[in-house]
Amino acid sequence: MRLEPLYQRDREQAKEEGKLEGRLEGKLEGKLEGRLEGKQDLILRLLNRRIAKIDASLIERIQGLSIEQLENLGEALLDFSSVADLETWLNQ
């Protein structure tokens, strides 16, 4: 019995499994990125409605927050009355 066909089959199978893992990883990464962008968008819209237009430097800082931090900001912004409140929160 020749080992070459078995080796080739195992090699092909490993390649396919690697492709599948890569696709699953990419899919998960895409979902997380989409979730993060959705939360950022919602928080920015709420802040704009609550305390008026936010400058670009604050937007950049908000976009650098993790999902957990965005969720915390979403709760905290209900108590904000000015941009200073947002700046204070971001500096904590």
Rank of each mutant, 00 (worst) to 15 (best):
D10R: 11
K31L: 11
I43H: 01
G38K: 05
L47M: 12
W89E: 04
A84F: 00
L90M: 11
G38S: 08
T88S: 12
L77V: 15
Q69M: 06
A56R: 09
N48R: 15
L36D: 04
G30I: 10
E87M: 08
A14I: 13
R45M: 13
S57R: 06
L65H: 03
E25I: 05
S81F: 08
R50G: 04
E16D: 07
Y7R: 11
Y7D: 01
L46F: 09
L47A: 06
D41M: 14
A84S: 10
L73D: 00
R9H: 06
Q40R: 14
A52P: 01
D85Q: 09
L20V: 15
G18F: 05
K53T: 15
E16H: 08
Q69W: 03
E68I: 02
E60W: 03
Q13G: 01
Q63Y: 04
W89M: 06
L46I: 11
R50Y: 01
R45E: 12
R11Y: 09
L86A: 02
L78G: 07
K39D: 02
D10T: 09
L46W: 01
R61F: 00
L73H: 04
E21I: 12
E12Y: 09
A52V: 05
E21P: 03
R35T: 08
G30V: 05
E17D: 13
L36I: 14
I54Q: 01
Q8K: 11
I51K: 03
G38M: 03
E71N: 06
D79V: 14
I43S: 08
L28F: 10
I62E: 01
D41W: 15
E17Q: 10
Q40N: 12
G22N: 14
G18I: 06
I54Y: 02
Q92I: 06
R49M: 14
Q92A: 11
S66F: 10
Q13E: 10
G26K: 15
L28K: 14
Q8M: 06
D10Y: 06
R11L: 03
K53L: 12
L32N: 09
R35D: 05
L28Q: 13
E60M: 00
G74P: 02
E37G: 11
L90A: 07
L47H: 07
Q8S: 06
A76M: 07
R23E: 10
G22S: 14
R23P: 03
D85S: 15
L6S: 02
K39T: 05
